[in-house]
């Protein structure tokens, strides 16, 4: 698990000499029955980022995607002999091939872009993990979905141990009250909405990885059905029209009809 650093460095170093592999694959958990909210969001973010860059890829669903991943997070990108996970590693890898969506931003804009990217990544990722694993009625659903690919008794043991691991990994969030988490999400949404204002994309005239990331998270969170803990988040998101607009913009531009 801890060896990803070298791998990333190696991928950036060696990867730049090879062109983008046409048969690149993106591995993710089974969307319908297994994947958690944060996994779906990250997968969607990576997919839209790759589409923004115009890079061909095929999405494959694997029940053990989490274990294929060098970091434990999904989706996993396999490009030639390189295996990478996490949007920021993938962005770095793609940049090593000379494709960069933020290249025409100024230095100050790049700094802001990095700050907002980190904001969206941490707040939404932690919040999604919180609603899937920490909140009791969210965990009920997660427990079934996470265990669905395993036979008994693993279907009981593995969700339990995963929950412990998640709680340890998001320690400062796991102790929060649901109200505080919603507040945190709302202030993040507010900040994003302020930053976006009435423009088409967050930075510059073209979409960047921030747009992909925001789309991935918001599209999945806004699509949460009523009754689930995530539905409280989706009603928060719907208050921000400009954020909803950017979601539909990404969807219409890059996923013509392929998303429901």
């Amino acid at each position: 698990m801890g060896t990803t650093l070298l791998q990333e460095a190696w991928a950036v170093e060696v990867g730049s000499r090879e062109p983008w592999a046409e048969d690149s694959k993106l591995y993710q958990p089974i969307e319908e029955t297994q994947a958690q909210c944060n996994e779906k969001a990250q997968s969607l973010a990576v997919q839209s980022y790759l589409r923004m860059c115009g890079l061909d890829h095929v999405v494959e669903q694997r029940p053990n995607a989490e274990f294929i991943s060098p970091t434990g997070s999904v989706p996993v990108l396999q490009c030639g002999s390189f295996v990478l996970a996490d949007l920021d590693s993938i962005v770095g890898f793609v940049a090593s091939k000379g494709i960069c969506l933020t290249s025409n931003l100024s230095a100050a804009e790049n700094a802001d872009h990095a700050a907002y990217f980190s904001l969206v990544q941490t707040v939404f990722d932690n919040a999604e993990l919180y609603f899937s694993w920490v909140v009791p009625n969210g965990y009920e659903v997660t427990w079934k979905r996470y265990g669905s690919v395993y036979p008994w008794p693993l279907s009981d043991i593995l969700p339990w141990s995963k929950r412990r691991a998640v709680k340890r990994a998001i320690k400062d969030w796991a102790d929060k009250q649901e109200r505080d988490v919603l507040e945190e999400i709302d202030s993040c949404l507010f900040a994003l909405s302020e930053r976006l204002a009435e423009r088409e994309w967050f930075f510059g005239s073209k979409p960047t990885e921030l747009d992909a990331l925001v789309f991935g998270h918001l599209y999945v969170l806004a699509g949460e059905s009523d009754g689930t803990p995530g539905s409280k988040v989706s009603s928060l998101i719907r208050k921000y029209d400009n954020l909803m607009n950017i979601c539909s913009r990404v969807k219409n531009t890059y996923f013509k009809g392929s998303l429901t």
């Binding site: 070298l6 791998q7 591995y27 053990n64 274990f67 396999q78 002999s81 395993y150 036979p151 693993l154």
Partner: peptide, 20 residues
């Protein structure tokens, strides 16, 4: 099963995980 080291070939990597 967990991957060992940095350059685990994909045919091995894709078999990682839990099984009973």
């Amino acid at each position: 099963l967990n991957p060992l080291g940095i350059t685990v070939p994909f045919p091995v990597r894709e078999q990682m995980g839990h099984s009973l």
